[in-house]
Design a protein around this nucleic acid. Sequence first.
DNA 1: TAGTTGCCTTCGAG
DNA 2: ACTCGAAGGCAAC
Length: 294
Amino acid sequence: MKLQLDNSCPLNLDATLCCGQIFRWHRQDKWWYGIFKNTPFKMRQIADRVEFENVDTSFLAYYLGLGDNLPKIYRQIGKEANIRKAIKQCAGLRIVHQDPWECLISYICATYKNIPAIERMLNNLCKSLGEPIPFEGKKFYTFPTLEALARTRTSDLKKCGLGYRAKYISETAKKILETGINFDQMKQEDYGALKKELLLLPGVGPKVADCVMLFSLEKTEAFPIDVWVRRVLLKYYSDHFPVKFVRNIISKNSLTTAEYNRLNSFGRSYFGEYAGYAQQYLYHYERTKTMKNA
DNA sequence: TAGTTGCCTTCGAG
DNA sequence: ACTCGAAGGCAAC
């Protein structure tokens, strides 16, 4: 099937799937292969056209976030030269609508790891506890269910290379099984209430909560502060903070909750309701500038 | 060569 | 409220 794009709806599929927001897509013979819940599918972009198989058009448009009006978002977040440069460099980068359960567990795993390591962990997890589903002669693995992760022993989770994260995964799964969190309902809640709720889960701090909200619960104003975004903010936006504050957090390698919240509040108020897009563009921009793999 | 640093942080003790 | 250290393991330097 095909989907035609135009100037009012730009897309850069490669940047979208490579930028580190989502971990289980891989490219083969110019196609991207991945899975959403129980449905494996593939897609590729040729100029202004997206070709895809095994899902329908409305799902694909939703999944890729094509409903977000990028030209309008660029006008809103393009407040100064640095962010405009970032936008120019990876124009068409979209924020994907991930499956919330997979996204939550993925970002609990992502703490204190680099992207290749995160991908390794998640693939191990899916291979040992997910369900194989054939597609084009290859096996695709579903993400392990809530029940599967809740009943698996921590020691077995550790075999997937999760390290200390294994305990958080198993406790979070058990907690959700008991309390019955409903992700669709969560999408209706406002940013503050939702964040508070997510922070109750083991292994979920402010950064993980912001990622889950941005990448799977449709909170475009969420503004996750990781090491790269912290660097960007101190580099290009230090004028917006007291000198003492900047000097203090430059000299150390972790943030207190108060410091996190300060950077986070700045991002949200400065960039507005689509601050999450600004975050993703700045993140990608800064990473690709200093690294060769991306 | 072997050691160090860094990685999309969180948690708990003091 | 803040500081500090621990918690896999791997790859880059």
